[in-house]
């Protein structure tokens, strides 16, 4: 039963590692922003999954706050790329 959740966590970790590689390599700032966006979405899924594994409701609240802050951060970065503030 729990083995499926461990497999999922391993897949998610490999995914976040690949996105992080793009974050390091990315030729332009926008590429890095995309990698950051994907990392934050992966992070939300990972937080919810860990919350289930540890049976802690607080992780769900954390995931929601992280989603809102990540979205605002990406919008700010996009503004910055477009007009240099």
């Amino acid at each position: 039963m729990n083995i499926v959740i461990y497999i999922a966590i391993v897949l998610i970790s490999i995914g976040s590692f690949l996105a992080f590689m793009r974050f390091i390599k990315g030729p332009t700032a926008a590429d890095r922003a995309i990698a950051l966006d994907t990392l934050s979405v992966i992070g939300i899924a990972g937080l919810v999954l860990l919350g289930y594994l540890f049976q802690r409701y607080i992780y769900i609240d954390l995931a929601l706050v992280y989603a809102v802050l990540g979205f605002i951060g990406i919008i700010v970065i996009a503004r910055y790329i477009e007009k240099a503030l």
């Binding site: 499926v4 999922a8 793009r22 926008a30 590429d31 995309i34």
Partner: peptide, 26 residues
């Protein structure tokens, strides 16, 4: 659903890593 979702997350990250330019990565 958890397993399916984690496979898609992995494939999305793989896409980010492999695609040739910014728009395809998006």
């Amino acid at each position: 659903f958890v397993l399916l979702g984690s496979i898609f997350l992995f494939l999305g990250a793989l896409g980010i890593y492999r695609m040739p330019d910014l728009y395809n990565r998006l």
